[in-house]
Structures are given as C-alpha cells and as structure tokens.
Design a binder for these strands. Structure first.
Length: 522
RNA sequence: AGGGGUAUCGCCAAGCGGUAAGGCAAAUGGCUCUGACCCAUUCAUCGUAGGUUCGAAUCCUGCUACCCCUGCCA
C-alpha cells in the first residue's frame, strides 16, 4: 500500500465518504502525464467505491476555452477514466467571493494598491524575509469597501489585488501574503463578463475541494509547498458558508511522470501548436492523449503503462521502451497483420512461370483465429524489403543472402541465386530456410505513403526547427498488399509484417503512420 | 532565516530491525512460416561516513547529490 492509498484509507476509517477530484485547467489538451496522475485518482475511486468529480480549474479566463473542456472529456472517456460529476471552479465564483469577504472580516485579508513590481520587491528573496506592504494594515471596513468596488469594476486591471495576511517573513514563499484575487477584465468562456475579478489557484482550489466535500486531494509534488496555504484557506473559511463538511480535505502529493525524449510541459506543447511546428494538439508526435490515439496507441496500453509506473515522490524518467512494451503487448493481441515492403527490392523467381499467379491464404492474426484471413497474390515477380536482403550479412543473419534460403511468408521458400543489378534472381526450393521474410506481389501490390514519426525533443532543449525534427515526419514509398488498399477502415490497427506497427491515418486512406518498431533498426 | 522534498540494479519499484520481490531494458539458450509471442537461464548489499544492535536498506548522527518554491499561471 502506498502513501496515497494510506491517506484514502485513513479518510475512510474516520468515516468520510471517499470523494476525489480531477482538476484539469481547460487551457490545453491532456497529455500522458495527466493520464498518469488521473489514473491514480481513478484507481482510488474504483478501489474504494468512491466518487470523483471532474472539476475544471478555470480561474484564468485568458487561457481557457470550451474547446479544451470538450477535448479533455473526450480523452478521459477514451482512456476509461471515470468521473461522477462535471463541475467548474467558475461555478463557485460567488461562494468564493463570500469566503474572501469572510477572510477580510476576520482581518486575514487586505486590499493592496501596490503594483506588481512593488509587491515583488517587498516579497523578499529565498532566505531573505519580505517586508509588509504599506497597505497591509488597512481597516476591515476599508478593505470591505475596496474589495466590493474591485468587484464592481471601479478600478483598472492590475491596480489592486486582494492578499491574504499571513507572514511576510515566512521561509515558505507561498505564505508571504499571497494574492487571492486580481482584477482582470477578460471574457470568461462560461461566465462571460459577469466578473472582472478572478480568484487565484490556491484560494479557489482549496475551497473548491472543501465545497465539494473532497476527502483526498491528490496532486503532484510541486504543490507540496502550497499545502500550508491550502490548509490555511480552508481553516480560515470554516463557517463562511453553510453545509461545509466536518472534515476538511487533505492534500497528498506524488511525483509526476516523465518519459525520455518527451516534453511534458503544457506551455511548450502549446508553443509547438501555436507556432505551427506540429499539426495540432493531436499531432502524432505529441505526447498528448489525442496524439497517441492518432498514433495508434491503444487506450488500454496507455493506462497499463501509466499504472506500471510508481506512485512515489521520487523524481522519475521512464524510458520510452517501457511505454512501447505495453503498446506492443496490446497491439500484438489485436493488430491485423499485413505485408509491407518499405524499400522495394525486386525479385524474379526464375523457376516460376511468367504467366502464372497463385493466391495464398494468410491469417490476419495468428493469436486470434476469429480475426479471419486474407488472400495474398504470388507471381514470378515480387518485392522484398531492402532490409530483408544483405550482400554482406552479419553473423546469425536470418534473412536473405546470395546463396541463402528464406521462407516467404505464406508462400514458398526461395533461394537467391545471384544479384543482377538491382534485381535478385531466386528459385523456389525445398532447402531449409534460415528465416521468414515478407513479400508483396510486384504486379498487384500497391504503393502507399508511409510516415515515420520522430520523437519529441528532450525536455530542456532549446526549441528550434531542427531539433523538433519537423522534417523527420518524412514520407517514403511503400508497397503493401492490394488487400490493404481495399480496406477502408481508419479505426483498424495493422501490424506490418516484421516491420513494426502501423495505423491507418484517417485523413488519407493510403497514408500510413509508422508508430513503433518491433525492434530497433529492423 | 531560506524552506519543502527525494536518495534501493541502466530505468521504474517492493521492502517498515532478521539476513535485497517484481516489471522494463540487456545477455545467453530453446521454440517458431512474424529475429514477434512463448519458455528457460543470467543480471544489486541498498548515496556516503560513522554509531546503536546478536543482527540495519530498515533506528540515530554528520556529510553529499538531485528536484521544487521568489506569477496579479495552474
């Protein structure tokens, strides 16, 4: 049992209902890091028969929109993350305002007329205590009046803020009179122009949890320093509103998921999108849930993966191979197999009649007979993939060499007699084959475009056109079975024989997105 | 007067005083009309220095390293 679960058990044993929450801000798409965080909450909800609210933390109208709300819901549903209610921080603006007034009346909050720079200057630095604002000791009456007028729109944006009166000398910067409300005339995607003051995260989040009777508030490590403020807001707003729960919510923090070569910062992902370096939030190179979906990663694979990573406070960076393991395992169960050659190498079968063709039947998925079969054409002219032949084979090479024998998948064994120019001359044989190789009939195979995806750059790398690998979303020509061309089901997963996994791009019926390779360099 | 966290195999991670689980990766071998899958085997004395104890990854002390915090973002 990990510390998160212990917290849930503790709440349960003290008689609380287990109520959790997923708190995305609708300012972008969900990425796999969110999937990990939310899966922890999801599994606690399921395991302890609790409830979970999907709460959009929408307190910064400049960045948020309904478009994001909808896509976050869609991704959550696709992943199978369950929630019982959909709520919005913006539903609580009135109650939050009441709580702020409650703090002012207790002398625990004040209106500050300082500029942003003045506030910053007085806040002090790490290891250096801050100094009180000249406005810190205003009377309750004056604060009440000023705050009401802030709400009424009497003051320009940024001219005043409401601050908590805590401790300007606290070693915890979050406690040096944090801003609770700012004036910001932005049209909110839900409340429109009804408000010109908006609550800050710490104030809104803690009290939203409290209002919703949240038992355990699970979040990531960077909020550890915020916990004292979280608790301060709740403790000082007891009695501010009716029907507040007996037990306050408790915040628990765990470490975030990092994956090698993945940028997991929403700010950067947004930058990629805004600057057109990627197609959009669902670009297959993006570590977003939508991008991975388009890339052909099954939802179950993503969930299995995030659950396989630990729930600890350790800084973690998981290798991409760990994610791929789950994708591969899942796709291996469900993927339809099909033959593809990416770099066609022409083969002539010298002892096969030029005017003859045959049709062979091949399983769509050897692990699943119910997946059916498909037909493959064979004639005296076929293509092999360039990687399946070597003039200079390394030790233990199992594919074709001059003089060697391989099994053509579903068809004959062939022996390579010689290489003439760019063409291999082979004959059908009964000799023992070294390995199995895929092929495509040269006359009926069809060309298709293949896209290869480059992983995103490593976190912390400077953003340039070069290192985002825009051009590595390259296209090459491949020959696939004609059968595949006849399929027009964008939702189907395909496994190209021994070349890796691919998924049909819904945008273009003959563009294939290479997702992962079964083996590096193969 | 800085504070808050974290340190167990290349990467995740169990372990909570009784003699280091498991997964990924890697390697070797077997099987195979996917070099896949599957099967078998191999792979750590626990950041460091001391201390307590019959016995410590687990307790104590001192070091060291790394992460987070100085938005009117969340």
């Amino acid at each position: 049992m990990n510390f998160i679960e212990e917290g849930v058990v503790k709440a349960r044993d003290r008689g609380q209902d287990i109520i959790l929450r997923y708190p995305p801000e609708p300012n972008g798409y969900l990425h796999i890091g969110h999937a990990k965080a939310f899966s922890i909450t999801n599994s606690m909800r399921n395991q302890y028969h609790g409830r979970a609210n999907l709460r959009f933390d929408d307190t910064n109208p400049a960045k948020e929109s309904m478009h994001y709300v909808e896509n976050i819901k869609r991704d959550l549903n696709w992943l199978g993350i369950k929630y019982d209610r959909v709520v919005f921080a913006s539903d609580y603006y009135e109650q939050l305002y009441t709580c702020a007034v409650h703090l002012i009346k207790q002398g625990l909050a004040y209106v500050d007329d300082s500029t942003m720079d003045e506030i910053k200057a007085l806040r002090g630095e790490l290891g250096v205590p801050g100094k009180p604002s000249p406005y810190r000791d205003r009377s309750v009456a004056e604060n009440l009046d000023l705050f009401a007028r802030m709400r009424a729109g009497e003051f320009p944006d940024g001219s005043r803020v409401l601050r908590a009166k805590i401790d300007m000398a606290s070693p915890n910067m979050n406690l040096r009179d944090p801003v609770l409300y700012r004036i910001n005339r932005q049209t909110h995607y839900r409340t429109g122009n009804q408000w010109c003051i908006y609550p800050m995260y710490d104030f809104a989040h803690s009290l939203s949890d409290y209002l919703e009777h949240i038992s355990n508030s699970l979040c990531s490590l960077e909020f550890e320093d915020h916990r004292p403020l979280y608790n301060w807001c709740i403790a000082n707003c007891q009695g501010a509103l009716p029907n507040l729960p007996k037990f306050p919510p408790e915040q628990y923090e765990f470490s975030r998921l990092n994956i090698e070569q993945f940028v997991m910062s929403k700010r950067w992902l947004k930058k990629f999108v805004d600057e057109g370096l990627v197609d959009g939030w669902d670009d297959p190179r993006m570590p977003t849930v939508a991008g991975m979906r388009r890339r052909g990663y099954p939802a179950t694979a993503i969930m299995d993966f995030v659950q396989s990573t630990g729930i600890t406070k350790n800084v973690m960076t998981v290798p991409l191979s760990a994610l791929e393991f789950y994708v591969r395992t899942e796709l291996d169960k469900v993927a339809t197999r099909v033959s593809v050659v990416e770099n066609p190498l022409k083969v002539k079968i010298v002892n096969y009649p030029a005017d003859k063709t045959e049709t062979f039947t091949v399983d769509n998925n050897p692990h699943d007979p119910a997946a059916g079969t498909h037909a493959m054409t064979f004639s005296n002219e076929i293509y092999l993939d360039g990687d399946d032949f070597s003039d200079n084979p390394p030790p233990k090479y199992k594919r074709l060499t001059v003089g060697g024998v391989v099994q053509l998948r579903g068809a004959y064994k062939i022996k390579c007699l010689r290489k003439v120019g760019d063409t291999l001359e082979c004959e059908i044989t009964d000799d023992k084959a070294k390995g199995v190789v895929q092929y495509v009939d040269a006359r009926t195979g069809v060309k298709a475009e293949i896209r290869s995806f480059a992983p995103l750059l490593k976190a912390g790398t400077a953003l340039t056109e070069d290192n985002i690998n825009r051009d590595s979303l390259y296209r090459s020509t491949a020959y696939v079975e004609k059968w595949l061309a006849e399929q027009n089901n964008p939702s189907t997963k395909y496994q190209f024989m021994r070349k890796g996994y691919y998924v049909l791009d819904a945008k273009d019926s003959l563009v294939f997105n290479k997702t992962i390779s079964l083996r590096e360099g193969f």
